[in-house]
Amino acid sequence: MSETTLLQRLHAGIRLDDELVIDDHGHMGPWYNFHIPGDGTPESMIENMDLIGINTCIVAPHIAIGPDTGEGNRQAVEAHLKYPDRLLPYITINPRRPLAETEAEIAHYHELLGGIKGFKFHSSCHLATCDHVGYGPAYDYAGEHQIPILSHVWDGPARDGKSFLTRQAAANPNVAFLHAHSGNSWETIRKLTAEAKLNPNVYLDLAGSGLPYGGLEYMVAQIGANRILLGTDLPFIDCRPQFGRLLAARISDEDKRMIMGLNAKRLFKL
């Protein structure tokens, strides 16, 4: 009997309960800018994940990337403690907070969680760039413990013809630099696949609302499926569209499995 392909499962709407599916880019809770049915509660997110069969979503609550990072980190950890296998917390860094506060928070969650799984930067929302001194403790921890950093963008000053991301990735070879929303437009795809080619520790996350036709296939051809991670942006965005794009892509099922879970398992040491 021939195995059902992942594309055939999409056609039939069959959940992927027997696959490893990890969403590397989740948020949580409501957001001021628009209505989210279900209000982005942990329960609503898990129900949405269950439509497809997402095992685990790594989350940075909206309030963490917005007005109150400390409260957001508390919410993320609380949700993780309630649903330990389904929701994992990013510790979000707002570089504008006092350094001592950030250092104390990292130490606290390191102790509480037995180690932090990953950091989330959202320099755009926090009105900073990724070279801000306030990110320093997170860079140090990530390098020491070899954990990934997911950033909305990797902005910062270019020097000697090299982007900030290239310089950071070279200076921190133990850190996986995850670039969020890498597959949202052709401009972004071209720019970031070039960055990833230069830097083996740069990875591309798919989260976002854009689904440019053929873009995922191009990314795989340029840098390989082992450098791309499924992200959905749930509950900013429903988890189904990016997932459908992945299942329908003209790449092998082996590549799809790397993107939908195996890469995240490796990087986040799950």
């Binding site: 689904l211 440019p212 036709y213 429903d238 569209p241 459908g244 794009r245 329908a248």
Partner: peptide, 9 residues
């Protein structure tokens, strides 16, 4: 735009 997304929806 890719058609797999709305099929999945």
């Amino acid at each position: 735009s890719d058609g797999g997304g709305p099929i999945s929806q």
